[in-house]
């Protein structure tokens, strides 16, 4: 299980009427013996990739299921393509639009919105 906290900002937060979600996502299950063997044999990064932690894309799909089509329209321009005004952040870094990034337990994901008030 990977637990992730998602924070919303700007117009997205206003539209949802909430500032965050706590999400728990199932990991892809690996045979435990294979998993153990891999842990010993492979370096951490590769091991993490093969562990099957959820991707950012999977997290966003889950959020769309949770919040519906209005939310989906605010997030995505087309399937798998974020709208231009969304700043996707994992931890304290803007990660661009790479939805294949894998998440770890305890990650914080923030969906910032482009703002231009002056």
């Amino acid at each position: 299980m990977t637990k992730v906290r998602v924070s919303y900002a700007g117009q997205l937060k206003a539209a949802l009427g909430q500032s965050d979600d706590e999400i728990a996502l199932e990991d892809v299950a690996l045979d435990s013996a294979l998993d153990e063997a891999l842990d010993e044999a492979l370096d951490e990064a590769l091991d993490e990739a093969l562990d099957g932690g959820p991707t950012v894309g999977e997290l966003l799909s889950h959020l769309v299921e949770l919040h519906g089509t209005e939310f989906e329209k605010r997030l995505f321009e087309s399937p798998g393509v974020l709208r231009p005004g969304i700043l996707l952040c994992v931890g304290d870094a803007h990660v661009g639009d790479d939805l294949s990034l894998r998440l770890s337990d305890g990650n914080e994901v923030t969906l910032l919105m482009a703002i231009s008030g002056g």
Binding site: Q11, H94, M113, A114, S116
Partner: peptide, 9 residues
């Protein structure tokens, strides 16, 4: 940060 003009603004 914003390769295109954000349409929601």
């Amino acid at each position: 940060l914003y390769p295109e003009r954000p349409p929601e603004w």
